[in-house]
Design a binder for these strands. Structure first.
Lengths: 82, 82
DNA sequence: ACAAAATTCAGACTATAGTCTGTGGAGCGG
DNA sequence: CCGCTCCACAGACTATAGTCTGAATTTTGT
């Protein structure tokens, strides 16, 4: 199955809006190179950063989280049906 | 208006399940004192921690985020209607 | 092929997430 | 009063989030 991380999702949304990493960084108030690190999955953001990036990409943060497919620890996004 | 932070929401859910901070910490694989810091708003968790805590409290992480009311930077939860 | 824009990468750095150990206080039941 | 549980708190520590500068590399448009 396809793994959609925070970074890959962010990249997808960014490109969908025709933004460069640098432009997104400016809108987030974050560093140019840090956006690059996030997209490549080399950093795990705090929820404060999640909110900033979500705002910059005009998506609700819960929407952002909901669209992720990841394993953090023993959490499985798919197969978790309540 | 009522401000519901990550910490206060976590505390509410924890107490709702009748768990001590220590029991929750164990279920999350986090430190006892760190749970205390989170509840008092003295730390901002990474999204990895969000997923761990959500799993321990049997709530979907996007649900958790959705139930927060916070100002991170210039983000306003309420009044953001798209 | 060329130049410019976009991104990656490296290193050194600062800020803060998260751990560990212990202390002291509040509340509660014997 | 005594022991017990839970929690706040402090301090010192380790790991990693996030910044900054600049150079190397890839991508893109013409």
């Amino acid at each position: 199955m396809e793994e959609r991380t925070f970074g890959s999702l962010m990249q997808e949304l960014r490109k969908g809006k025709g933004l460069s990493q640098e432009e997104l960084a400016f809108r987030c108030g974050l560093d140019r190179t840090y956006i690059s690190l996030l997209e490549r999955g080399l950093r795990v953001p705090t929820i404060a950063t999640l909110f900033k990036v979500s705002a910059a990409l005009t998506i609700r943060p819960e929407e952002f989280i909901a669209r992720m497919r990841v394993q953090f620890g023993n959490w499985q996004k798919d197969g978790s049906r309540e």
